[in-house]
Amino acid sequence: MRVLLRNPSREIEIAGRRRVHALLTELGLNRESHLIIRNGTLVPGDGLLEADDVIEIRPVISGGS
């Protein structure tokens, strides 16, 4: 699957299918600070991502005062 990451924006390729949780763990990302979006729709933690999916992993933490 193609995975779009942000801050800075970049793309990576992951082979095969994954549960959302497994993918986040694999990438070392905390589920509390990210959302997974596929075709404009959120995918929950146990959602299955297919090998040919295009997804965005969107960080939700913003800095500043």
């Binding site: 942000r6 801050n7 800075p8 924006s9 600070s33 969107r58 960080p59 933490i61 913003s62 800095g63 500043g64 005062s65």
Partner: peptide, 16 residues
């Protein structure tokens, strides 16, 4: 979605 370029590494983010 993109973060303010001046936020990187600040203490507030670290606490979060």
């Amino acid at each position: 979605v993109d973060e303010c370029p001046m936020a990187a590494g600040n203490r507030h983010l670290g606490h979060k």
